[in-house]
């Protein structure tokens, strides 16, 4: 046992400086395309290449809808000279349609201690893997007062991944109902936002918002741990939201 103690000490501190500072370590994020200026013809070709319809052709270039983007890289590889700009950021969390719930004082109550129940509503496993990384020494969400709990009874936040399959619909509703108020829902991954590559279909609802109200949306396929962390911080109002769609006009400013 002493051996493990020594091993632990020898390893030292590995934890990311985020959210105090930006984490610039290579590989923390797969990155995602940014809205890019092109002439109309090139924009049409690029938008056609996108298999999920996340790239929207625009007069002056290509907009990106992150609810659909699975960063499959088809818009930056094998495309000849026209390549979408690619950002390596990870603060992707955005507010859901009904995020503005006044008078909850969510931050006052949970700003420093927050319990999270993770729920897999049909995700492929990559989202869960990334969420699980939040507990590893690199991200160590305990330092921020975030804890994963096995029961929704103790949970303040429901972290959902997956497109919500038919069979997971009732468990999702039951889990949400079992959580005490006030509570918030964070949908992570493109599947949980729009169904992603799977749906909507005969068997998947095409997003968590189809079943329960969602407060924070974290796009990505899968969103890297820091993006999930950004979403969680956003849910307790400890950081600023990002946007779900990026337009060319916005890149000019």
């Amino acid at each position: 046992m002493f051996n493990w103690f020594y091993t632990g000490l020898k390893t030292g501190i590995r934890t990311t400086p985020y959210p105090a500072k930006t984490d610039a370590a290579p590989g923390v994020s797969p990155g995602r395309p940014r809205a890019t200026r092109f002439d109309a013809q090139v924009a049409t070709v690029l938008a056609m290449r996108c298999p999920t319809g996340a790239l929207v052709r625009h007069q002056r270039g290509v907009d990106v809808d992150y609810r659909h983007c699975v960063h499959c890289s088809r818009c930056r590889r094998d495309t000849g000279s026209a390549v979408m700009d690619w950002s390596q950021d990870y603060d992707w969390g955005a507010l859901g349609a009904q995020a503005e719930r006044a008078g909850h004082r969510f931050r006052d109550i949970f700003g420093h201690s927050l319990h999270i129940r993770f729920l897999d509503a049909g995700a492929c496993g990559a989202c869960m893997s990334e969420a699980r990384q939040l507990n590893n020494p690199y991200y160590n969400i305990h330092r921020l007062g975030f804890f994963i709990t096995p029961t929704p009874r103790d949970a303040d936040i429901l972290l959902v991944a997956g497109p919500v399959t038919d069979a997971m619909r009732i468990p999702l509703q039951k889990t949400y109902a079992a959580m005490p108020e006030p509570k918030r829902v964070v949908a992570m991954g493109v599947c949980a936002l729009s169904g992603g590559v799977f749906g909507p279909s005969f068997i998947s609802a095409g997003g968590v918002a189809q079943v329960i109200p969602v407060d924070v949306l974290v796009p990505g396929c899968p969103p890297p741990p820091l993006a999930i962390l950004h979403g969680l911080l956003l849910a307790v109002e400890r950081t600023m939201p990002s946007l779900l769609t990026m337009r060319v006009a916005e890149t000019e400013t």
């Binding site: 929704p152 009874r153 999702l172 039951k174």
Partner: peptide
């Protein structure tokens, strides 16, 4: 504080 009542938590089974 308001009392909140929820059904028994059984892992999400129906």
């Amino acid at each position: 504080r308001q009392l909140q009542r929820r059904s028994v938590w059984a892992g999400g089974i129906r």
